[in-house]
Every structure is written in C-alpha cells, then in structure tokens.
Design a protein around this nucleic acid. Structure first.
Ligand SMILES: [Zn+2]
Ligand SMILES: [Zn+2]
Ligand SMILES: [Zn+2]
Ligand SMILES: [Zn+2]
Lengths: 156, 156
DNA sequence: CGTAAAATTGCAACATTATAACCTAAGGAC
DNA sequence: GTCCTTAGGTTATAATGTTGCAATTTTACG
C-alpha cells in the first residue's frame, strides 16, 4: 500500500484548505476560485505535480487554461506558504504545516513519487552549523533528497 | 572585491582540468574537445552558468551550437562528477573537490551570484540524523541555500 | 448608492530550458 | 583493414515559465 493511501486524503485536503483560508483572512488576501482549486488539486494529487498537469486538470473543469492562470495561482500559494516548489522536479506540492515560516525540504521516493516534508528543526540545525563555519547570511534554503521510502523499500 | 577574484582563476581551472583528465583515464572515458572546453568555460565563469550561455560561448569559438552539444557534454561532466547542477537556477558550476563522490550542496549569494560548495561532512550528518528519524534510504541529495556572502554583506 | 483605485483574470505572444530521433564521423579492438 | 562502439551533427520538438496589455471584478470611500 503506497504511503499516499495510508491516511484520509479528504482530511488532508480540508485541513489544508481551512488553513489557507485562515491565512488569507489574517493577511487580507483573497482565496479566489482558481487559487482554491489549484490548492485542492495540489493536495488531491498528493505528490509533486507539474504546473502543466495542474493546468490540464483546471482546463477539464472549465477554468481558463492558459499558463499564466496556474502560475499566478501557484505564485500566490507559494507566497502564502501553503505549497512548496520542488525545483529538481519542476513540480509543486502542498505544505504539511503551513503558517509556520520554513524552508523547503523534502524526501522524494524514486519509486512511488511521494514527497515527505523534512522537519524544519533539522534544517535549522544545519543552517546554524553552516553559519558558524562560514559567514554567510542564509535567507532561504531548499533541500531535496531522493531514495526509497519505507514502503517501497519493503516491497522491493 | 568579489570572492571570485580573491584567488587565481587559472589555478582553479588547471587543477580542475587535471583532475577531470585523470578521472577519465582511470575510468576509460574520453575527454574530448567539446567536453574539455565546456568544463573550462564552467570554471572560467566561476559562477553558476546556464546551458544556453555556455552554448553561446562555444558557438563564438566555432564549436557546434546546437543544444544537444552542450547538454551531452554537461551530462558527461555531471556523470564524471566534475560539475554540479543547481536546479533552482537551471545552471551548472564546477565541483570544488571532484573525485570524491558527494551530493550537491551550495550556498549561492543573491548579490554577486557566486556559489560556494557546502562541506560534504555537514550534508552527511544531516542524512544520518534524518535516516534515524525516518526509515528512508537516501540515495541522492541536493541542497541550495541563498543569502549574502561575507563580501556582499560587508559592502551592503 | 456612484465612482475611482486596486487587484484579479483573460488572452496572446514569446522566452527559456531540455530532449528525441536519426544520421554521420571518429576511435579502438581484433 | 573490418567491425563495433562511442561521440558528435542536425533538425525538430517538447516542457517549463514569462511578459505585456486589455478587460473585468472587487474594494474603498465620499
Ligand atoms: Zn512546508
Ligand atoms: Zn515510495
Ligand atoms: Zn562538488
Ligand atoms: Zn556575494
């Protein structure tokens, strides 16, 4: 059983949507239909999804199907902190714990494609160690690990 | 003075070329003119460089100027372990310590664009911590930090 | 209300990055 | 030399992402 089916998707999605709505209200931003639907789709897929895949899904539902539509929605959601971009995959994925500012860090299974967010604590610890050694000021960071998840390792 | 000028470029380049040649000999691979020149260019720029920038430079020198030329050379050099790809920039940069298998990790200055390779030791430590917490098997990892380098912080 | 400013969306074109497919040329083994 | 493998040339195309501007919707405010 893939990790993506070990839990209640609908719960994931509704929680994510609630949090996003709350964040918008707090910041005076608008959760418009396209933005809402893109976030839902990102969560429904529940694994990193390309912008053009999302665009195709939107298109099937009667939304506008030009690239700027989905990229603008994604930019908004990234800014809001409810999705992450995985640059080695050119793909987007929902954030597990939105509302707490943190960097992008994922473990991506080569077999099933699921992406698991890394604990912010470990990323912070790495930052601290690096800052001590070098005199950089770290503003953002992005960590992408690949390998086999527990399930796929067991099945292999 | 930018970090890229605090040292002797020519030394960087010749060392990198020597190592690459040695690695090729050890593995029975061919360091052809295009491959050699691409590696030299990557080192000459001494900061992350896009494939199409490299292609333009090659073209000026009479090399073939079609995309596959540079992508094939870059694939070879990546495989050989003498360059890294920085996926958040879609760019390539020379490896500081080739010949020792290691993951991609860079600090990239937002101001001057220089990319400094992170110590493999710290990356390994992060891996170990994560593996203890989760039961992933990590095969590759990629770490891209941004911020200001020491020089640019001072100048700002 | 009514209107003006701001934010969002629609739309068309374009830019950038990367790959596929197929063929030719060069290098090495025998 | 002949054969086989590797590398490079060439053309076309795929995949990803952006710019610019007009039209619309939402909000702010008198
Ligand atoms: Zn997150
Ligand atoms: Zn898996
Ligand atoms: Zn390296
Ligand atoms: Zn700098």
């Amino acid at each position: 059983m893939p990790a993506s089916q070990q839990h209640d998707h609908n719960h994931c999605i509704s929680t994510a949507m609630d949090t996003a709505r709350t964040l918008c209200e707090q910041r005076g931003l608008r959760m418009t239909p396209v933005r809402r639907r893109v976030l839902e789709l990102v969560w429904q897929n529940h694994k990193p999804t390309g912008a053009y895949d999302l665009l195709a899904q939107l298109s099937e539902e009667g939304f506008n199907s030009a690239p700027p539509t989905v990229y603008r929605a994604l930019d908004f959601l990234l800014e809001l902190g409810v999705v992450h971009r995985i640059s080695s995959l050119n793909a987007f994925v929902g954030c597990d714990h939105p509302g707490h500012e943190h960097d992008t860090g994922f473990f991506i299974c080569k077999e099933c494609g699921n992406a698991t967010e890394l604990p912010a604590k470990e990323i912070k610890k790495l930052h601290e160690t690096l800052v001590k050694k070098f005199s950089f000021s770290i503003e953002t960071s992005n960590h992408e690990l690949t390998g086999l998840c527990q399930n796929c390792k067991a099945t292999a």
